[in-house]
Design a protein around this nucleic acid. Structure first.
Length: 668
DNA sequence: GTTCTAGAAC
DNA sequence: GTTCTAGAAC
């Protein structure tokens, strides 16, 4: 019977069997053939399984053969399984076209963990596609790289995504139960986000590291200071994406410059080491030992002489290593993966199964080592402020199987604490204890603390971009390219985007002071110190250019974290002054004069912004001298470049403006 | 904080 | 058509 005959269209359809094309989508080893076979065993509906691996009569067939065969089966009134990978849209398109008024096109996606597909592919002996052994891993991974989950818009009437064995089971039951006249509801079933390929957290993390990257070190794994599992750049065997680091951007960043090159605070880095734990060999090992300097080499030797495949060794980094002082790295975890080189110990000799096990052990050792660092730092954050360095003997518990030094590593510990004491003796302020703690890497507790004020008064969450000044205040020595002055209390720098000819920032070097609202009476000396530094520098500039006029003050609701005083000349002659917010943040009540802040804190114990902060930022644009209004920034800028009207009386009082003694171009 | 850009304003 | 703003994204 020719059911596709046009004469049948439009009549008696409800009594006629509607055929189904089920396009199976999945990597080798995902269970496509099994799925088809199982349905066919128990179904009362006539099915044909069209398998590209067998259609060629012993050899692998072609897509065209599959299409032809499918069309002919449909003509015979049979439903068909298209048993080929069908992982990308293009591969599926021709088969979707088999659909029509009497033919529904279904997609069944077997989106199982890659490691499961690989192990099945490896284990199978009689697989029709002859995809066996270690080669399978590479093939599966390559295919999953291109994985494109089907969408209804491709022409499917129904799509079922199975992401676990139980999903597969459920779908098997659905299709097995289909009688010759039954149909299934249309729609998308199974997965919530069809575009999800890789965990978002990982991509976000990589994107950040990618920006200023110089040399790619793609084998390197880096672990962010937040200790959040998503931020670990890692081969991800739990998601159903490819099990391969190369699924991530190649230029993920230089692991030896995460902070200086990428602004990424990271305490612990992993090194794909060699078995002798020695520098060299090229790649990430060479790069890390090179960046770590001789100190890393010495510290490594103290922990272990060599490493077995699958093992890790945690090395606390001495403070004289550039990786420590420049990047804030406190630990390097050396790991050794499976070895396939017969000239080195423990060669795998093409034993894929053992290789997988060793690789798993490698990652397990790495994470255990990392967890031990995290635990010891957590303890320190909770415990006494006096004991800063992690306890090396604790870390050694996790270097099992390595040539461990069991005698407590007192030399290094006392050395690190000694350095710390020196650091601290140079800074006399009490709060510098916390700076010390930061240098020694306990950033976990610190970040939490700073995004969530201890007194609970204000919980502003600062974005990563808002941390720059905080980092500079805490580690000015790492930012000497922008820093002009460092003292116990303050750091001075040029504003990165000056809004006038002269625009400096005076940063408070105090932990926990993010903005003026955090300032209390006990910080009065700091406010005065900041003002004095600002004043001194303004006067220095006035000697160079007596026509300048300065104003010192704070933004009521700053965008950047860490209390900072603006010292800004009143010409506002800058290409960086671009919008209303820029202007109003310096020329409305949003700008809190330093002299007023000092006065209010000294009399009220705190500085309370007068107007509802942010509302000031969008008010009309007015000249700061003659108070005339202007429709837009270009017109305002054009006006202020010429306006020589006297400043408003309020600014002329109380030393709010700082000008050269001879400057007559100011008052009435 | 900046950059990017859609769309409003001119 | 061009200029400018404002909101989202980072």
């Amino acid at each position: 019977m020719d059911i596709d005959d046009a004469s049948h269209e439009g009549k008696g359809e409800e009594t006629k069997a509607k055929r189904i094309v089920v396009i199976l989508v999945g990597a080798p080893g995902s269970g496509k053939s099994t799925f088809g076979e199982q349905v066919m065993r128990s179904s009362t509906r006539p099915w044909v399984r069209i398998c590209q691996d067998t259609i060629g009569g012993g050899k692998s067939g072609t897509k065209a053969q599959c299409l032809k065969s499918a069309a002919s089966a449909l003509k015979d009134g049979k439903s068909v399984f298209i048993d080929r990978c069908n992982l990308d849209r293009e591969q599926r398109a021709e088969f979707v076209k088999l659909g029509g008024p009497n033919v529904d096109v279904h997609g069944v996606v077997l989106d199982l963990p890659a490691k499961l597909c690989i192990s099945r592919s490896v284990k199978r002996t009689g697989h029709e596609g002859n995809l066996q052994g270690g080669k399978a891993a590479a093939v599966v991974n390559r295919m999953l790289q291109k994985k494109e989950l089907p969408k209804l818009s491709e022409g499917f009437t129904r799509i079922t995504v199975c992401q676990s064995e139980s999903d597969v089971e459920a779908s098997l039951n659905t299709y097995s139960a289909l009688g010759p006249l039954d149909t299934l509801p249309n729609g998308y079933f199974g997965q919530k986000n069809p575009d999800a390929k890789i965990q978002l957290g990982i991509m976000k993390f990589l994107k950040k590291a990618e920006v200023p990257a110089a040399n790619a070190v793609s084998e390197a794994k880096s672990i962010q200071s937040s200790f959040s599992p998503q931020s670990i750049k890692e081969m991800d065997s739990s998601s159903n994406g490819p099990v391969n680091v190369s699924s991530f951007p190649e230029n993920a960043g230089d692991i030896t410059r995460l902070y200086s090159g990428g602004g990424l605070s990271c305490n612990v880095i992993a090194n794909a080491a060699n078995w002798r734990l020695k520098p060299g060999g090229g790649g990430v090992n060479a790069a890390i030992f090179n960046a770590g300097g001789p100190a890393l080499e010495v510290a490594t030797k103290e922990q272990a002489k060599s490493l077995q495949p699958g093992r890790a060794v945690v090395v606390p980094l001495p403070s004289n290593s550039p990786l420590f002082s420049r990047e804030g790295i406190t630990h390097v975890i050396h790991v050794l993966g499976p070895n396939m080189n017969p000239q080195r110990p423990n060669c795998l000799d093409n034993d894929y199964i053992t290789g997988c096990k060793v690789l798993r052990d490698t990652y397990t050792s790495l994470f255990e080592g990392f967890a031990s660092v995290a635990r010891s730092q957590e303890k320190l954050a909770k415990g006494s402020n006096e004991n800063h360095g992690p306890n090396p003997s604790e870390l050694q518990d996790h270097t099992e199987g390595v040539n461990m030094k069991h005698s407590p590593n007192n030399d290094q510990k006392s050395k690190r604490e000694g350095d710390h004491d020196n650091d601290r003796s140079k800074k006399c302020k009490g709060s510098q204890d916390e700076v010390g703690a930061d240098i020694h890497g306990s950033r976990t507790g610190k970040l939490e603390k700073n995004n969530d004020k201890i007194d609970g008064s204000m919980t502003k969450i600062w974005g990563s971009w808002a941390q720059t000044l905080y980092h500079i205040a805490m580690h000015p020595e790492r930012h000497m390219d922008v820093v002009l002055e460092i003292s116990d209390n303050v750091v001075v720098l040029n504003d990165l985007y000056p809004k006038a000819k002269r625009h400096l920032l005076v940063l408070a070097r105090y932990e926990g002071l993010d903005c003026l609202a955090d300032v209390r009476k006990e910080h009065l000396h700091l406010l005065r110190a900041m003002h004095d530094v600002g004043l001194r520098l303004a006067e220095k500039f006035l000697q160079e250019d007596a026509s300048l006029i300065f104003r010192l003050g704070y933004h009521s609701a700053p965008s950047m974290r860490q209390l900072h005083l603006h010292v800004i000349s009143q010409d506002f002659d800058s290409k960086h002054l671009k919008n209303k917010k820029h202007w109003n943040s310096f020329n409305t009540a949003f700008f809190f004069d330093s002299v007023d802040a000092i006065e209010e804190v000294s009399s009220n114990g705190k500085a309370t912004p007068r107007d509802d902060d942010e509302s000031q930022l969008s008010i009309e644009l007015r000249c700061h001298r003659c108070r005339s209004a202007h429709p837009n920034i270009p017109r305002l800028k054009s006006h202020i470049s010429n306006c020589r009207a006297p400043f408003p009386p309020a600014l002329l009082q109380s030393g709010r403006l700082v000008l050269a003694p001879c400057n007559a171009d100011v008052g009435p």
